[in-house]
Design a protein around this nucleic acid. Sequence first.
DNA 1: CTCCGACATATTATATGATTATTATTCTCA
DNA 2: TGAGAATAATAATCATATAATATGTCGGAG
Lengths: 248, 248
Amino acid sequence: MALTRIPRDHNLTYGLVESLGQLIVTGEFDAKAFPTEGELSRQHGTSRSVTREAVKMLTAKGLLQARPRQGTSVTPEAQWNLLDPDVLRWLLERKFSLRLLAEFTEMRLAIEPAAARLAARRADPDAVARIRDGLRRMVAAGLGDEEPVTADIAFHTAILAATGNRFYAQLDPLINTALRISIRFTNRVKGRAAGIAGHEEVLDAIAAGDAERAGLAMHALLSEVLELIEAAAAHPGAGARRPVRRAS
Amino acid sequence: MALTRIPRDHNLTYGLVESLGQLIVTGEFDAKAFPTEGELSRQHGTSRSVTREAVKMLTAKGLLQARPRQGTSVTPEAQWNLLDPDVLRWLLERKFSLRLLAEFTEMRLAIEPAAARLAARRADPDAVARIRDGLRRMVAAGLGDEEPVTADIAFHTAILAATGNRFYAQLDPLINTALRISIRFTNRVKGRAAGIAGHEEVLDAIAAGDAERAGLAMHALLSEVLELIEAAAAHPGAGARRPVRRAS
DNA sequence: CTCCGACATATTATATGATTATTATTCTCA
DNA sequence: TGAGAATAATAATCATATAATATGTCGGAG
């Protein structure tokens, strides 16, 4: 039961990437120009090496671009790599908007039913067992044994993995962060959004190899979530909006 | 009609990122350990600064991880950010496999019909015009006025943009590179894969606001592509496999 | 023999100064 | 007015030094 050794990610460079990433997505530099290399170093008390490496990482994620004499600048939002887990996390956590959450859910509505169909066609007994285990944990979480979000995530992750398609599996970290936000939100609005029953239907269909039913069941699940989000967007103020906390 | 000023991307750092990215995805370091910072500098004739910055960019894309004393290492393939345009491009161009192309097409088969449905529900006249223009260019390309791939890409891009959903729009560069490879391949196997007629059906449905029909038409289009790829995978050698060229 | 801590060591992480390349802006001159 | 030259600002690159951090090694206590 060894803890999987998580890389520390605890150095100046990664810290600066986090800070700058959050500042960028929250629009801190929409008005004023992005600081120059030297300014960044001074402002954050880091060496130029660290600064440059952080800027390069953000460039790799599409948030920044740099040219001599012109300086470093924030790229137009359309070029941001929303499918990068970090970028999506910064957006959802630091610049939460129902609009963005709705758009992401709209994409899940395309991906996950297809994933369920593939899983129904391909899942081997082990994969099905992992999905079933996710569901079991969701039920257990209802009894307080575990955080419900974690179990729900495990369920969806297991289905993505069961597709045997690397691109679906790749969406796992994205869906995880979004789900964490999404659940936190849908719970506040209406108790538990999608009941255990809906998840059971998905699992049954996959286990039975019924691709069509699995897809439809997953679609129903996510449609409900999307409707909740869109309803809330139409009636602002119904659920208290969580204020955007800024890094101290 | 000014050319959009494309950033030059013509410096040592980006060059090294390209080289290393290609080497990594082609499995160059599966056997031997990834070189140390100093070794990389010597091997590529770059200073430690550019070496480190290149490594950091690849780290941001999930290909590398570095820890003191342990050295830098290639991450397990499951952690690579396949949804990063660079990573996908390296894989498709330098380590082409029908398997990967099939998996990607499988994802397009989830995304693009959904995009077509959304486009049918939301597309304003301008957006429809842009889709129509893509189709017009495809027809013109048949007459030799333009490269067919470019026109086809414009068609798909316009639909993704018409969804008004940033995540769908984000898939544009990914689908572009893949489409470029995909078309090159499907053409070799069987002349033009999906005829103009299929594309016209998609456009008509979107213009008519018929979401269901648009989705089905797009689904049909991509199913045909996927079938071609899977058939070729089952009969290796039917179409001459393009050899993987290595950077000189 | 096993476990634990001190120490050595390799490697990345950080810091800093200097130099070069690139390019937007300004100036000069025809 | 316009073209070309000079200027200057900025990132890009290089070089070098020091710090931090894992990892292995070895000796000794139990």
